[in-house]
Computed example of a mutant assay.
Amino acid sequence: MVLLFAPHAVTVVTKPTGVNPRGSSEADWTGAERVTVQGQVEPAASSENRDARDQVASTFVVRLPPGTAVSFKDRLEWNGMTLEVTGDPLPWSGLAPLDPIQLTASRLRG
């Protein structure tokens, strides 16, 4: 199923969890699984923190096709940027099979 207006190729990056030498579980992004879907990415907010150093935080609203496997632990790749999924991806309700999954993602620089 595709979104009615989905002009962006968005890659969902899911990290595998391995075990470090001490026996603790550890995320390893080098072996991450990547799945690209058509979605919609909109800028939502941007702010600058100059207290300790120049730092910019940008937030995006992302809509993905129904049934897309994405969780709060994942990352997204879009438009040359890597975005962290923040919060739970939640399905819209009301349009039945056309309901997209909506989430918030952020990028921190600096």
Rank of each mutant, 00 (worst) to 15 (best):
G18V: 15
V61F: 08
E84N: 04
R75L: 08
P21Q: 07
M81C: 07
G67N: 03
G87V: 02
L108V: 12
V10N: 00
A32G: 08
P100E: 01
L64P: 00
S47R: 05
F60R: 00
P100Q: 02
P21W: 14
K73T: 11
P16F: 12
A27F: 15
G110E: 02
H8N: 09
M1H: 07
D88S: 12
P66R: 10
T14S: 15
Q38R: 11
S25P: 15
M81T: 08
D88H: 08
P91E: 03
L108R: 02
G80R: 06
W29Q: 08
L90V: 14
A27E: 10
L76H: 01
L98H: 04
V12K: 00
R107K: 10
A69F: 13
W78I: 04
L103P: 02
W78D: 01
G39M: 05
P43N: 06
Q38I: 03
P66S: 07
R63H: 05
L83F: 14
G87Y: 02
E42S: 14
S25C: 07
G31V: 10
D99L: 12
S106Y: 03
T36A: 03
Q40T: 09
K73C: 03
R107L: 07
A52H: 09
G18F: 13
V61G: 03
G18R: 13
R50Q: 11
G87A: 03
V12R: 00
S25V: 12
V70N: 00
W78L: 03
P91H: 11
T30Y: 14
T86Y: 09
P89V: 03
M81Y: 06
A44W: 12
L4K: 15
D28V: 15
A57K: 04
V13L: 11
F5P: 04
V41G: 00
T14F: 12
D28L: 15
G23H: 10
W78S: 03
A57T: 09
T17L: 14
S71A: 06
H8C: 07
G18P: 05
R53W: 12
D51A: 15
T30D: 13
V19Y: 15
L4R: 14
R53D: 02
G87W: 02
